[in-house]
């Protein structure tokens, strides 16, 4: 056993050391604690309180007890918006992550012009939700958009993809997948964290690229995949701007793109019902929290950390 190994047994051991780490930890966490106490917690607690009030932003809130929750139980548009959001999350997130991972691996190394490709694939993500995105999206999926023009070459008559209730949500999912650049960047960074040494050893032993990918890349990348999964799920549940911009804020046609946060926004800022919007926000928090907790629990079985014993 090496000296390093002996040191390990000391870790997290005796009381005095534990205390020293407490102190160090709190020092490292000081900025975050400050931010939590001063900036984050106050507004969160406020919004929790507002959940139990009627608040139109223009006059002081009035306490109404559980009224908002009762209304939420009966609100069919809310239920519908949850359904839309779930569909969006569970279809577009896996697709986006798979594409991001695939291209990150392809664009990792060994190809001429990598920097250019990476930048080009990242470009759509840079556009974010700028005011131009809705116009651009109609240029792709609108009646006179590129998709229909290409279909016309094959003699297929297209349709208004963005504005048909059956396909509108689909185009928003594609829009989300289209911006796979963000998770791709994180994957790229993660790939470079994998010591080349592992691959050297493996290729010396004659392992194929395919084997290397499944035996080295994937396990070593699991913490990053896990991170991206959590991040994209939270992001997709809160997805707002793209639906807002593309549908002009309506969530239409026929509520087919009424994301939960879009409906929340409509209630809070258009109908001036901020109490109800706050209650909706806390329901969303519970839902996202549950999914995140589930993910963390499941991660024990598939995420591998290099710092584990």
């Amino acid at each position: 056993m090496s000296a390093l190994g002996e040191l390990r047994t000391l870790k997290g051991g005796s009381a005095p050391k534990g205390r020293r780490q407490n102190k160090a930890a709190y020092l490292f966490l000081l900025p975050w604690f400050l931010g939590l106490a001063v900036i984050t917690i106050g507004p969160m607690i406020s919004s929790l309180y507002l959940s139990f009030t009627k608040y139109n932003l223009l006059s002081p809130p009035k306490f109404t007890g559980l009224t908002n929750i009762e209304r939420m139980i009966e609100d069919e548009r809310l239920h519908h918006s949850l359904l839309v959001t779930f569909q969006y999350v569970f279809i577009s997130v896996p697709l986006q992550l798979a594409l991001a991972l695939l291209l990150a691996v392809v664009l990792d190394r060994g190809l001429r012009g990598l920097a250019i490709y990476r930048s080009v694939f990242y470009l759509p993500s840079l556009l974010g939700a700028s005011v131009a995105i809705a116009v651009l999206w109609r240029q792709l999926f609108g009646y006179d958009g590129l998709v229909n023009q290409v279909l016309a070459w094959f003699g297929i008559e297209g349709q208004g993809w963005i504005s048909s209730p059956d396909t509108a949500l689909g185009t928003l999912m594609i829009l989300n997948v289209w911006t796979f650049g963000s998770p791709m960047v994180i994957f790229l960074a993660g790939l470079r964290q994998i010591p080349t040494m592992y691959y050297e050893a493996a290729s010396v032993d004659g392992a194929s690229r395919w084997q290397q990918f499944w035996r080295i890349t994937m396990p070593m990348l699991t913490p990053i995949i896990f991170f991206n999964l959590i991040l994209q799920i939270i992001g997709a549940f809160q997805s707002f701007t793209q639906a807002f911009v593309v549908s002009g804020g309506t969530g239409g046609p026929v509520d087919s793109t009424l994301f939960y946060t879009l409906y929340l926004y409509q209630r809070g800022f258009t109908s001036l019902d901020m109490g109800y919007a706050s209650a909706m926000a806390w329901l969303l928090l519970v839902i996202i929290g549950a999914f995140t907790a589930l993910n963390f629990w499941a991660s024990k079985y598939w995420v591998f950390y290099d710092d584990q014993d």
Partner: peptide, 18 residues
């Protein structure tokens, strides 16, 4: 856990108190 929870509220309801 608290740290993760802080990013789960949509901005639209915290922006007014902020």
């Amino acid at each position: 856990a608290i740290m993760l929870v802080t990013i789960m509220l949509p901005i639209h309801v915290v922006i007014v108190p902020q």
